[in-house]
Design a protein around this nucleic acid. Structure first.
Lengths: 191, 191
DNA sequence: GTCTATAGGGGGATAGAC
DNA sequence: GTCTATCCCCCTATAGAC
């Protein structure tokens, strides 16, 4: 059987994600994707009738990816601090490979202009991240790996905000700003 | 002399800022402003020939505002921790009065799509914020008001990233998230 | 599944009257 | 300073051929 559809479809999501992260949801068009993939505008509409369908697919795939990362046997068995670094690496990759901010940050700033289904999916994404981090920090503190005041939820909010804000700030200054942010948040978690 | 111009012009900047913070630079149009102010599209172009002229004016005014805030005699003489809270209040106001994210965060996510002059002004804004916070934290630590590992610059990055990311996250969850972020960053600075 | 062609709307921006 | 009128481009989306 042909896998032309599957290939094109995932190429569109790949590129759509890159454009979304790089330019915001209102900053790219089907034409950008079409030109870059060497196909026509209408071909994209065949796979994703509305732009919000594409946006939704991008967020859903990212949530699945994170879910798999969290459930990965190798990752799961790492020592807490290495697992933390592995989490930070997700954000570092946004910076190095895609020259972009993170998905939650991009979607949150565009939030008010997003169609309802994308808003809901964005909420889900942020919920996933917050929940994972909260549980992770809670376990880590109980084991003595991490130390921080307040509740695990308080600290989870801080850690995610730093990743998100750090990626954005680094975009207008220089790469070192994000790396300094990561180093500092690591220090702040030291027992 | 008539002050019609001055009035309209600053009303445009006011509304433009609100829209920029609420919907992103690519998320609002001259028509939004025109309708809301009860004037016509062309009237805005009289004051700001290009949209980037308006964007530039918004950022420049915000920088002036922050400069004045920093140089304000009353603010300057406050104890460090009250001055820190006064800084946090700037961000809290974005949330309560404008239902929006902060200016640097909004501009950074749209950054790649912004005209050059706006990019440069955005860099300046972030530089202002980072520099002020770095000096403030440095002095505070020397006085024993604040405690944190790493350099003042490291910590300044973290604090700003938390404000920025916190405002964005709170938009898709609930207001408490931003307040929890502020409480937590205050705790993390405790001696 | 992808194409050509095109509809239909909104965007930024300008010309010229008042 | 503000208006009416209009241009032109880009955008999302659809219809129908291949």
């Amino acid at each position: 059987m042909s896998r032309t559809q599957g290939d094109t479809k995932s190429k569109i999501i790949d590129l759509g994600e890159k454009l979304l992260l790089g330019k915001g949801f209102n900053g790219f068009s089907y034409a950008d994707i079409a030109i870059s993939l060497g196909i026509k505008n209408a071909a994209i509409h065949y796979h994703f009738p509305c732009k919000s369908d594409l946006g939704l697919a991008i967020i859903q795939r990212a949530r699945e990816r994170f879910k798999k990362w969290g459930a990965n046997k190798e990752t799961e068995q790492l020592p807490d601090r290495e697992r933390l670094d592995s989490f930070f690496q997700i954000y570092r990759h946004y910076l190095t490979k895609r020259e972009s901010v993170c998905l939650s940050g991009a979607l949150e700033t565009d939030f008010t202009t997003l169609p309802k289904p994308m808003q809901e999916e964005t909420r889900g994404l942020v919920y996933d991240l917050l929940t994972w981090m909260e549980i992770f920090l809670d376990q880590g503190r109980k084991r003595g790996t991490f130390s921080f005041p307040g509740t695990p939820r308080d600290q989870a909010i801080i850690v995610l905000a730093v990743m998100q804000g750090g990626l954005q700030m680094t975009r207008v200054t220089d790469q070192s700003v994000f790396d300094l942010a990561v180093s500092q948040i690591r220090r702040l978690l030291k027992p």
